[in-house]
Amino acid sequence: MSQPAPFFKTLLARPEAVLLFVLVAELVFFSAVGRNFNTADNFANIVRHSAEIGLLALVMMPIILTGGIDLSVGSLLGLCAVLFGVFTHEWHIATPLAAALTLVVGAAAGGLNGGLITGLRLPPLIVTLGTFSLFRGLAEAITKGTMTYKDFSPAFLALGHERALGLPYQGWLFIAIAVAISVLVHRTTFGRSFQAIGFSPEGARYAGLPVQRRIATTYVLAGFVAALAALVFTARLRQARADAGSGYELQAITAVVLGGTSIFGGVGTVGGTVLGVACVAVLTTGLKLIPAIALQGIGSELGSLLTGALLIFALAGGVLAKSLAARRARRQSLAKPQPQPIT
């Protein structure tokens, strides 16, 4: 149906393919150079340390797909972690109920973002910058800046430490949410509307789509999953602190943009986001296992540095590639075959 193109050309045109290649290269490199990289324990370790950011990236993706952004997810993670501690330790609510309550609070906080953005048509950037400060501030106020909640029930802590079939629990959770978001974005009318809104909010409105409601949905979803990530974080560290998840919003956005989702909206896949998360996770963990770097104890800084640099190159590269492609398309448009009616 579409124009024939060489196999490799179409393959390389997709950012997912590039990422997959980068991921494989990372795995090969670190297996060769890193110490104990290629072990089940290390694999589990990577999963544990990247599940929370991965979850945030998964819900950041639909938001960016609609052309929005949410800077508050990291702060919300901190607030939800602290609230979970308050629910279990000060209100003495049973853990499952406390967890459910935390998820509700997360969704409500996301609803606050969504409500301000769609109700008053405020720019998402500045609204979520405000709630970024507000949520973190509330977490600090509740804990008076220093208090941490410890001694959670063993059953709950298992979420952060146990494995099933070799994969840590939070890994299964990540897969479940990834599948759910992927279905939502690629298999339902919700995803269709996110895409339409990202390309053209006005066009979506003229098609009778519920634009404001769909946008609000993405922020509520982000709040809900941020709360989920807070539970995972608390279980992993065995404690709830006000500074939980600081800076996670940046890493989540990085993973999404690296994963090929256009910051201008409309274009992107959940699979790409998963690959983006994996690339960043393997890079940051793998570096720590290279003896020379481990010796200096600079693995995490180097990992973050490379992530930031990677994001700049991904952004600039995307734009430059696009303008090159546009130039080539202009040259080829003269020789373009004319479409024929389908009969």
Binding site: V127, T131, L134, R136, G137, A141, T143
Partner: peptide
């Protein structure tokens, strides 16, 4: 308590944009 600083800062930003 001074721990409210950040929360109030966020609230002031939100109030201003609203």
């Amino acid at each position: 308590e001074a721990y409210w600083e950040k929360a109030i800062q966020g609230l002031v930003i939100l109030l201003a944009v609203v």
